[in-house]
Design a protein around this nucleic acid. Structure first.
Length: 466
RNA sequence: GGCCCCUUCGUCUAGAGGUCAGGACGUUGCCCUCUCAAGGCAGAAACACGGGUUCGAGUCCCGUAGGGGCCGCCA
């Protein structure tokens, strides 16, 4: 039988980095074994679930390239399925109606707590004979009192729970809605999920779920509990550690492959390899190489990886991707040869698409603005003669190329007995407004003769005026 | 409190009884160099602790400590 795994987020907010990693693991697992990846929205929390959140989750999944084969299913569409299964369990005596009031149970829980005990439902309604008509009831699973429940975990090995730890828990609430554990099992069972890969915060739920499978006489899937992603203080990763939503990373100029590559390496490894193109991830990903210990999210490493992908993806693709960021800055650009050239020289020093866009201004504006410090340091009287000879030589230049420009600068530095930096920096300020840019000859070539001369002249005016 | 999970450089990790404990991010120094990056080279940096088992333990067992999770008619 082919492998079937699922990702089941609850749409109560943005798609979280931690959630995405389990999505990635599930996706890779199914792709590696050529199985099916199912998307299911756990939206039974009526008050906290929102349509916007569902849309965002789907959007983020698509952006990351995590395509699904079935779904998205919604638990809210499946109410009758849960109810009929609960009825079935009732009928075969694996579950029973419980008429205990919530207030009463709450009282007992408090009482137990006071005595330092953990409250477990005593099974008061377990053997009730007459069913009071018209009274609301919840449905509880009849659980074993003795023995142990073993959970086979592909990452952690066998985990054993004492049956005494588990009471007759509720599977259907008084309002007819399923409880979480019940809905999950019914869904996974009816969707024929073979492998449940999820966060380790679900370990404690697993014995209960196993019990439900057994009551249903349904085959138990294989479980794999992945450890939590932590923040720098080793507490569970949350907003206070910085951005945690996928959409936020997209907006900060991260590439989906960098995020997938990074997140995947958090808890999974393949020898010493760090860079994994998607195809290679699919080929190499197995649960065997997933670690057990929790991992601290390290933004610097993600940033490094993002820089790596920016530098190594085909330049035209990066150009295409940076366009929205340039437009956001009010720069009107289109994908053409010039943009690709610009991107290919700028991307060496950008770690995000935002940085890349921010470093590109001077190629698109009509007039450069000088940075104060740069202007003060390099646009001074002594550079005036240099600019003048440069202008002279440039205007007679036919081939405005890196090579020719190099020659001209060489002539100037040689004649004046100065270093290249003494020419390059002032020119850089004149052309870009700042002291940092790609190689000055490359910048000049892309800017073109006309623009270069125009900007140098402007710089000359500026110096003369002050 | 009960139950469960986890523990190798600051961080991600390799390691499946015998290694100078390897790689990566970050960090330090040097090289390259028109600035900034990128790149190259070199360095500092770890087996939580205590007992066993074994000729030999990061690796196996048992404790301890620390971190985390779950204990709802929440998901």
């Amino acid at each position: 039988m082919s492998v079937r795994a699922r990702f089941a987020p609850s749409p109560t907010g943005a798609l979280h980095i931690g959630g995405v990693r389990t999505a990635i693991f599930n996706w890779l697992f199914t792709r590696h074994y050529k199985g099916k990846f199912i998307l299911r929205i756990e939206d039974t929390d009526r008050t906290r679930s929102t349509e916007e959140s569902i849309a965002e989750i789907l959007d983020a999944m698509k952006w990351l390239g995590l395509d699904w084969d079935e779904g998205p299913f919604r638990q809210s569409d499946r109410l009758s399925i849960y109810q009929s299964n609960a009825q079935k369990l009732l009928k075969v005596g694996k579950a029973y109606r419980c008429y205990c009031s919530q207030e009463e149970l709450e009282r007992r829980r408090k009482e137990a707590e006071k005595q330092g005990r953990v409250y477990r439902y005593e099974g008061i309604c377990r053997n009730i004979k007459s069913h009071p008509s018209g009274r609301p009831f919840a449905i509880r699973l009849t659980t074993p009192e003795l023995g142990s429940i073993e959970v086979e975990d592909l990452i952690r090995g066998t985990i054993v729970f004492d049956a005494k730890e588990i009471d007759d828990f509720i599977i259907q609430k008084t309002d007819g809605f399923p409880t979480y554990n019940f809905a999950v099992v019914i869904d996974d069972a009816t969707m024929d999920i073979t492998h449940v890969i999820r966060g380790d915060d679900h370990i404690a739920n697993t014995p209960k779920q196993v019990l439900i499978y057994e009551a249903l006489s349904h085959e138990i899937p294989k479980f794999a509990h992945v450890s939590t992603i932590l923040g720098s203080d080793k507490a569970k990763l949350s907003k206070r550690h910085g951005a945690t939503s996928v959409v936020a990373y997209r907006e900060m100029g991260y590439l989906p492959e960098a995020l997938v590559n990074y997140l995947c390496r958090l808890g999974w490894s393949y020898g010493d390899q760090e860079i994994f193109p998607k195809e290679e991830l699919i080929e190499k990903f197995t649960l065997e190489n997933v670690g057990k210990s929790p991992a601290v999210f390290n933004p610097e490493k993600l940033l490094w990886l993002n820089g790596w992908y920016i530098r190594n993806k085909p330049a035209d693709e990066i150009a295409q991707l940076v366009i929205p960021f340039l437009k956001k800055k009010g720069l009107n650009v289109t994908l053409d040869e010039r943009l690709i050239k610009i991107v290919s020289i700028l991307r060496e020093r950008a770690k995000t698409l935002v940085e890349l866009a921010n470093s590109a201004d001077y190629f698109f504006v009509d007039e450069v603005k000088y940075e104060d410090a740069a202007k003060k340091k390099f646009l001074s009287a002594e550079t005036l003669p240099i600019f003048e000879t440069l202008l002279e030589k440039l205007s007679s230049l036919v081939e405005f190329t890196v090579l020719e420009l190099q020659n001209i600068f060489g002539e100037i530095t040689e004649k004046r007995g100065i270093k290249l930096v003494q020419v390059a920096q002032p020119v850089r300020v004149a052309l870009t407004g700042g002291t940092v840019s790609p190689g000055i000859f490359e910048v000049m070539e892309i800017l073109g003769k006309e623009k270069v001369i125009e900007r140098l002249k402007k710089a000359v005016h500026h110096i003369s005026r002050s």
